[in-house]
Design a binder for these strands. Sequence first.
RNA 1: GGCGGGUUGCCCGAGCGGCCAAUGGGAGGGGACUGUAAAUCCCCCGGCUCUGCCUUCGAAGGUUCAAAUCCUUCACCCGCCA
Length: 424
Amino acid sequence: MTSQLLADLEWRGLIAQTTDREELTKDLNSKPLKFYIGFDPTAPSLHVGNLVVILVMRRFQLAGHLPIALVGGATGLVGDPSGRNEERTLNDESVVEQWVGNIRSQLERFLDFNSGKSAAVMANNLDWTKPVSALEFLRDIGKHFSVNQMLAKDSVSSRLESGGISYTEFSYQVLQAFDYLELYRRDNCRLQLGGSDQWGNIVAGLDLIRKVESRSAHAFTIPLMAKSDGSKFGKTAGGSVWLDSEMTSPYAFFQFWINTDDADVEKYLKVFSFKDRSEIERLIETVKVNPGAREAQRELAREITSLVHGADQCAKVEAASLALFGQGDLSALDEKTLAAALAQLPKVSINKGEAFPTWVDLLAATGVVDSKSAARRIVKENGAYLNNEKITGEDFAPTKADLIHGRFLVLRKGKRDLASVELI
RNA sequence: GGCGGGUUGCCCGAGCGGCCAAUGGGAGGGGACUGUAAAUCCCCCGGCUCUGCCUUCGAAGGUUCAAAUCCUUCACCCGCCA
């Protein structure tokens, strides 16, 4: 099983760089290896981009290795310069602390923390970083770092060219190296995984371990997810696709995957799916033979949504997706099905007895557009629909007769942006 | 510390006293074609009680009938010199 891990990861395109491959293979095959990945609290929630790395972690655990999920309570206070051409704004300690909590509970969904000896464990680098004084840090850790080497790191040198870097962010790699050393010492953790932008930081840890402990450890990086059209993975019009259901609804999450480009679906399946290789290859084939059916996208959406939001929630949103996109005549849906589907959408209520607002006002109220001007524009551009029927005229207002099952209106903006209105 | 240059709408970037809600590109949105895909083409893209009004061009004051455009102070950035 283990011996196939690297080969499988390779096939999935999940290996960017590793330290000595032979050594790593040997170590992975000989016994369960402790490994870690760090997640810095830079937002209230993890997003689909993080999922790539989390799922690699899961693959390692499934292959018998022991994950340490590290939350960056300390590093999150400092800010990683990697991949940024601008200094970060420091976040308040209380905010970071809250984000640490959020990230912890999200990570718990993807790893097994309960099965005795092989269980994953959680760690927070604030636990060992906070007690260290600045003087101790400079003398015990800082002494092992050459500024020349630190400056040579991509994350730093690119910043030197693009406007500079503060001492705070410059120190980031030292902090992360300290984490690796600490985990090596206390848990004999000998492998660190991360996105490919983390290579420099990870290697800084390896160097530190070599200098202080005279021992070697491993680094493994995962390619950054890229879309075929060059745009950034994990972003939609509304911003990032978050794992938190309050920030990205499960319905929107499902839609994100359903709308995957044909050109990307093969890559996504390999990266995100836990289906076996033959099943994935079969799905890839369906994209070539009958792309219009979008079977691969559907399977992908189903699997990832189930994993992140649970099978029940996934079933609900998929039903909603099918109901709302399946047919033109919404009134043909029975009330229960429609109600369940609409519950997944942004919604607004209107009170019985009050006059019906205009379509423009309703759409603006759902938050699907930012302003009434934007809603008006949609009408003008012929992208406004009520119950799947195109409407015209900026002052168009629905009437009682438009209510489906006496309660619902379905607003649509363009081809696929839906919202619901309920009479209460 | 001295001298010079900069700060414009989501991003990049023109404008340098009235014709400016502000050229152009990108991102984004709508339409056509499709498959809730991509590419392509067309249109749109500050807000509102929308033939008009309101708020924007780093911040605050000022000059003027009129300022993104001129002046003053402040903040931040970038160069060159020390």
